[in-house]
Structures are given as structure tokens and as C-alpha cells.
């Protein structure tokens, strides 16, 4: 178990290192530097600017400096917004993204599991069919399409929810709906198929034979075992919700990291793009690492396999 966790941890660190190096060298591969395109800057000022951004040093030295700064939690300074530190920009905008993301993850898990469970318990009945049609739609329709349609129908046409902004609890509904459409679909499908498997297994028959009530069987045995595959999806779901929030924040005018990211892409503000990429990378890889560990901790059956595999 400890060896497995250590291995996963090492794996995460190596992946992060590759991501950081890749972002750095990709940014260096861009022809010219951030100041060449702008109107003629006097030579001395240019030298100062180079020195400020460490651009006057050899590439490899810049790379080492960059790595060192990241370890200290310093992601550099924005090139377009005057004297704004990238870490500052991230910490200022992170709270709205975090709130939205956490709510979305909780809603996705609860609704997804409930939907999948209903579908499994009423297998081949109306609920099952409706849930599975919804699941296919949720997987197939891109989140920004869902968001735009929701905004048009529920906010503009029927005026149930506010169109934009992120102030009160009512502002959460539409972005969360748009963000969770596809995770809910995936979770519902995962839960349904694993629950169906569990429902047909021998120990459920035993539980029935022991005279347990239907409620006890479902809550004690079916749910506990059927929910296992959902845990493996937590890592990918985090990725899904983060990438989703990049466009969702844009559509609903939420001042989170995603919006900042899009803005940085449009203005080609490289330090911010790099910083947010690395920040996202850290969140996603930590989420994946925790998923791996949680799965081994929860499911005793795969412990051995994990030891052997790594």
C-alpha cells in the first residue's frame, strides 16, 4: 500500500515536471520576444525589461530560474497588466472558480449517482429509458452549447434565473447545470451498469434471504459496492469541470480563473498562460493522485493488483 502510494506520488511529480518543462520550452519556441512587436523601445529600456524578465540570460539558466521560482510559489509577472504578479491574479480569481467547481462536483456526484441508481433499480422501465437518453445527450452535447441554450431559455426567455454575474445563490443554477451535464451523464452510466452487476450478485440474494428490508439492501450493499467505479471518475471529472469552467465562466460572466485564462490567451499574455496552465496541471494531477489512492483504500480487492502492477 505505502509502496503503491509512493509510486503514484513519484509518477505525479514526474508528470508535473514534464508539464512545466514543456510549457517553458514551448513558450521559448515562439519566435521573437514579447517586446519585439510593440513600437520601437529605446535600447536601454529594452535591456532593463530583458533583465526584469530574466530574458538576458541563456535559455537553460532561465529554465533553472523558472523552476526555482515555481518551487517558491512565484509564477512571474504579467506582461500585459502592469506589475501584476501571476500568483496574485490566480489567488484573486480562484475563489469564484473554486466555489463554482466544488458545488458542481457535489451536484454531479449526487445527481449522477441518484439517476444511475434509479435507472438500475427500475431496469428497463420508463425511468431507466429516460435516464439513459439524458445520459447520452449529456455526453454528446458540448457544455458551451448547453450553457448557451440554458441561458437563452431559462434566463432570457422565461426569466427564471439571472442571465449573468456571480453574486447570489440564484447565479449558481445555470453555470452548475451547464458544467455538470456531462459529468452527471457519465456518473449515471457508470453507477447504473455497476449497480446492475451488483444487483445480480450472490450476496444480494443472501441479504434478501436473511430478510433484510429492501431499503437496507440498497443502502448497505448495493450502493456501497455499486458506487466504486464512480470514484475512479473523480480525477477525470475534475478535469472535465475545470476545462468546462473555462468557457462557462466566459458565457456567464463569472470573474474566475477560466475567464482570466481566456483573456490571457486572447492577449497572448504568456506568463499568465503558463502560470494558469501549471496551476490547472497541479490541481488535476493531485486530483488524479488522490483518486488512485482513494480507490485502493476503498476497494480491498485491487490492493494486491496494485502492488504487483507497480
Amino acid at each position: 500500500m505505502i509502496r503503491y502510494v509512493f509510486n503514484r506520488f513519484l509518477h505525479m511529480v514526474v508528470s508535473l515536471f514534464v508539464l512545466i518543462s514543456a510549457t517553458f520550452f514551448l513558450m521559448k519556441a515562439i519566435p521573437g520576444d514579447p517586446f519585439t512587436a510593440e513600437k520601437k523601445i529605446p535600447e536601454q529600456i529594452l535591456q532593463r525589461l530583458y533583465a526584469q524578465y530574466n530574458l538576458d540570460k541563456p535559455v537553460f539558466e532561465q529554465y533553472l530560474l523558472y523552476l526555482k521560482n515555481i518551487l517558491k510559489g512565484d509564477l512571474g509577472i504579467s506582461m500585459k497588466m502592469l506589475n501584476q504578479e501571476v500568483t496574485n491574479i490566480i489567488s484573486q480569481t480562484f475563489s469564484s472558480s473554486l466555489k463554482l467547481g466544488v458545488v458542481a462536483i457535489i451536484v454531479a456526484v449526487i445527481v449522477g449517482v441518484a439517476l444511475g441508481m434509479l435507472a438500475a433499480l427500475y431496469h428497463r422501465k420508463l425511468i431507466d429509458n429516460v435516464a439513459m437518453v439524458m445520459a447520452v445527450l449529456g455526453i454528446a452535447v458540448p457544455s458551451f452549447v448547453v450553457a448557451s441554450l440554458l441561458q437563452y431559455l431559462l434566463a432570457y426567455h422565461w426569466k427564471i434565473f439571472p442571465v449573468m454575474g456571480f453574486k447570489g445563490p440564484m447565479n449558481y443554477f445555470l453555470p452548475v447545470m451547464a458544467l455538470t451535464a456531462s459529468p452527471i451523464a457519465v456518473i449515471a452510466r457508470l453507477t447504473r451498469s455497476s449497480m446492475l452487476e451488483v444487483l445480480h450478485s450472490e450476496y444480494i440474494k443472501t441479504a434478501k434471504a436473511k430478510g433484510l428490508s429492501w431499503f437496507e439492501i440498497v443502502s448497505r450493499h448495493v450502493l456501497r459496492n455499486g458506487i466504486l467505479p464512480v470514484i475512479t471518475y473523480v480525477g477525470p471529472m475534475t478535469a472535465n469541470i475545470i476545462t468546462g469552467s473555462v468557457v462557462i465562466e466566459q458565457i456567464f460572466g463569472i470573474g474566475g480563473i477560466g475567464k482570466q485564462f481566456v483573456q490571457a490567451i486572447n492577449t497572448r499574455d504568456y506568463p499568465i498562460i503558463m502560470g494558469i496552465t501549471i496551476f490547472y496541471g497541479v490541481i488535476l494531477m493531485v486530483a488524479r493522485f488522490l483518486t488512485d489512492v482513494a480507490y485502493v483504500a476503498v476497494d480491498p480487492r485491487i490492493k494486491l493488483a496494485g502492488r504487483k502492477g507497480d
Binding site: S15, L19, A22, L26, A29, I265, Y270
Partner: peptide, 19 residues
């Protein structure tokens, strides 16, 4: 391939297209 895979897909794509 595992290390390449664990780097978030869309981040890599975005980086490449920015460059």
C-alpha cells in the same frame, strides 16, 4: 505514454495552439 497521458490533454493542446 502514461506520463504523457497524465498531462491534461486540453492544456497541452491549448499551449501548442498558442505557440
Amino acid at each position: 505514454s502514461e506520463i504523457l497521458y497524465s498531462i491534461p490533454y486540453l492544456l497541452v493542446v491549448i499551449m501548442l495552439l498558442v505557440v
